[in-house]
Amino acid sequence: MHPQNPNPRDIDRVVAVLQRGGVVIYPTDTVYGIGCDITNVKAVERVIKLKGLKPKDAHFSFICKDLSNIADFAKVSNPTFKLMKKNLPGPFTFILPGLHRVPDYFLSKRKTVGIRIPNHQIPLELVDRLGNPILTTSLKDSDEVVEYTSDPELIYENYKNLVDIVIDGGIGGNIPSTIVDCSGDEPVILREGLGELVF
């Protein structure tokens, strides 16, 4: 799939799979991710199993289409909104206080949720067509040297029997997103990743 200009028919095919509870692997502006429709419990359970996690330990982030629908899922203060506006779309995961609309498996013990708006057309168009955010979790490699698999052909070989679709959007990155915790009074960088935060 063309990373800047994906074919609408291809996007529709993937969305149809997501609507049926499918699990897909897709490129982002950082590393390849595994995802599904956040409203489909069975699909989320498949991802949890795929990642080898216990449901209570599974705190995933999700991809929103833009800042306009973030208020549906999280509490966003004015300073946080301004910070996000300066840095999104981009390689950041913002940790925000979650609202009860968010399914439980996305909320941490502190009732926070991770939100991404990647600077990549494929996941943004998937979310737009689907009408819901999609779960996102990085595709880790079992290799101890290479933390993230970036070659879509290798990803396909490793995951073709575990997921419904692997989207080839070209060679991916191997540096994850920068995680910014905005659930307290001041933003705190929890993980230095690809993005450099602009204040």
Results as ranks from 00 to 15, higher is better:
9 R>L: 15
87 N>I: 06
57 D>W: 01
65 K>A: 13
185 D>F: 09
91 P>T: 13
135 L>A: 04
78 N>G: 06
192 E>F: 06
146 V>C: 13
172 G>F: 00
151 D>K: 10
3 P>V: 01
3 P>E: 07
134 I>G: 00
32 Y>A: 08
144 E>S: 14
32 Y>C: 07
117 I>K: 04
66 D>K: 10
17 V>E: 05
30 T>H: 02
134 I>D: 00
176 P>C: 04
96 L>Y: 09
191 R>L: 13
191 R>Y: 11
28 T>G: 01
150 S>E: 14
69 N>K: 13
184 G>Q: 15
6 P>G: 01
65 K>W: 08
164 D>L: 05
33 G>C: 07
187 P>N: 11
162 L>Y: 12
115 I>L: 12
104 D>C: 02
60 F>R: 04
123 P>D: 00
48 I>V: 14
49 K>Y: 05
59 H>C: 10
172 G>Q: 01
43 A>Q: 06
87 N>P: 08
176 P>V: 02
38 I>C: 07
85 K>P: 00
70 I>N: 04
187 P>L: 08
175 I>R: 14
85 K>Q: 14
147 E>V: 12
45 E>R: 11
163 V>D: 01
117 I>N: 09
98 G>H: 08
144 E>V: 15
188 V>D: 09
123 P>L: 01
162 L>P: 04
62 F>K: 11
106 F>Y: 15
157 E>N: 13
153 E>H: 15
121 Q>A: 15
154 L>F: 11
84 M>E: 10
177 S>M: 07
136 T>L: 03
86 K>Q: 12
173 G>T: 10
113 V>S: 02
177 S>F: 06
20 R>W: 00
188 V>Y: 04
82 K>V: 10
186 E>K: 15
171 I>N: 03
53 L>S: 11
181 D>L: 13
57 D>K: 12
64 C>N: 10
120 H>Q: 14
47 V>H: 10
190 L>N: 05
152 P>D: 04
175 I>C: 06
169 G>P: 02
169 G>K: 02
170 G>F: 08
32 Y>H: 07
151 D>T: 08
93 T>H: 02
86 K>R: 15
167 I>M: 11
90 G>L: 10
193 G>Q: 02
179 I>C: 04
148 Y>R: 09
163 V>S: 03
120 H>M: 14
99 L>N: 14
183 S>R: 13
161 N>P: 02
31 V>T: 12
102 V>W: 04
81 F>I: 01
29 D>L: 04
22 G>Q: 06
48 I>P: 01
151 D>C: 06
25 I>W: 02
